[in-house]
Design a protein around this nucleic acid. Sequence first.
DNA 1: GCCGATTTGTCCGTATGTATC
DNA 2: CGATACATACGGACAAATCGG
Lengths: 239, 239
Amino acid sequence: MKTIYFDIYENLRDRIEAGEFAYQSLIPSETMLAREYQCSHNTLRKALEVLKLHGYVQPIQGKGVRVIWQPDRQARFVLGDIESFREAAERNGIEASTKVRSFETITADDAVASLTGFRTGDLLYHVERIRFLDGKALIYDINYFLASAVPGLSPAIVESSIYDYLEGVLGVRITTSKRSIGVEHVTNADRDALDLLDYTMVAVVTNHTFNDDGIMFETTFSRHRPDYFTFHDTAVRGY
Amino acid sequence: MKTIYFDIYENLRDRIEAGEFAYQSLIPSETMLAREYQCSHNTLRKALEVLKLHGYVQPIQGKGVRVIWQPDRQARFVLGDIESFREAAERNGIEASTKVRSFETITADDAVASLTGFRTGDLLYHVERIRFLDGKALIYDINYFLASAVPGLSPAIVESSIYDYLEGVLGVRITTSKRSIGVEHVTNADRDALDLLDYTMVAVVTNHTFNDDGIMFETTFSRHRPDYFTFHDTAVRGY
DNA sequence: GCCGATTTGTCCGTATGTATC
DNA sequence: CGATACATACGGACAAATCGG
């Protein structure tokens, strides 16, 4: 990254993950680190802020900054911050592939508008994809894209990586994403799309994504087979 | 709150929720707001930072700060940041009560240590409680507290509010909390504890809570009946 | 396409407050 | 009480992005 504080954040994060700063230990003080990285006190604090938000450390007033990160123990499919399916699969070291189930252009009626949060009359791309992990159909993705914000979307693009197209070709930057997670009964479509075994419920992640204009341009429902679904989160008091 | 930036954050949040700043509109610029609140540029930015992290606004470089908050449409039991069951119930306007199912002191063996993340040999309080919403047994909470960090815990305290005891009596401040969410098959204990109807799976929230010493002092498994479970989250790129 | 005004983003230095030991 | 460490706040400077003329 180009900014100083982000470089420092990455470096400190790597040092924690490498074990240089052990779980439960205190890292060097802000003034020491600012001297080491040749930056100002405020810039170093900004780096610590990001470390804290990611659950690596916990600053304690008057004492120091304690490491609270420890390696994950489970090896399931873990959702992180804002990242694509492919990124998540790579990070989890899982072989992944995608199959497009349907691709169509629709105009939002009242039902779709209420379901997705778009406005009635909006022109949308409706995409359904099946995600394979380790050769098994485990995630059923139902996307709605605002056509005006994602011009030129095509089945071929959807087949590879939508986010590469958004970020690379269109120059859209994804900044904010609101998620909610629930558990629902399987539908006939789920049974059709997924290798469900005898599961009768799926974990559903609903995702509203905003582009750098602050426009919600994507609503996605990701329907996961329960045994491959895990979601992680770090909450910080006051934030 | 006592700090300036938090006061400003709360005020701006209220103005957004009251509709003074509409969804998708741009709020006044940082310089204007800094003048209005009689504070420095940086202090106002700190307030905006918190607003952003809570999913109220999205700053766009060169353009302004866009409101992306809109009122929740669902009326289920919504989990927020770090908050107690009672706080969440009140915020959701639901009548809630709690029944203690068991209370015991144990020494962590290898199995418990692996399950909870505590160390083998740690002295723990093991508490099981059933949460009632609208008169129905919907959440089955299994807590493990590190005894050395929560001295004097008793069934009577557990019956009312553990967090009032921690914060009020012991002066512990809860700062960081790591969560993961999964879906599991119901156990016999689930069937015994909850009004499960014909559900065969439960949503499980695993919570590791850290006190202000950076010590993990609580591990909780909250097992929810699926139809009453929803989890919300806002992710921001780069953080 | 360029330029200048506006707006957010980053960085610095400093001062003061508050908690811990 | 003093030393140390994190937390808050201020003011100033410049960079980067956007938009309109």
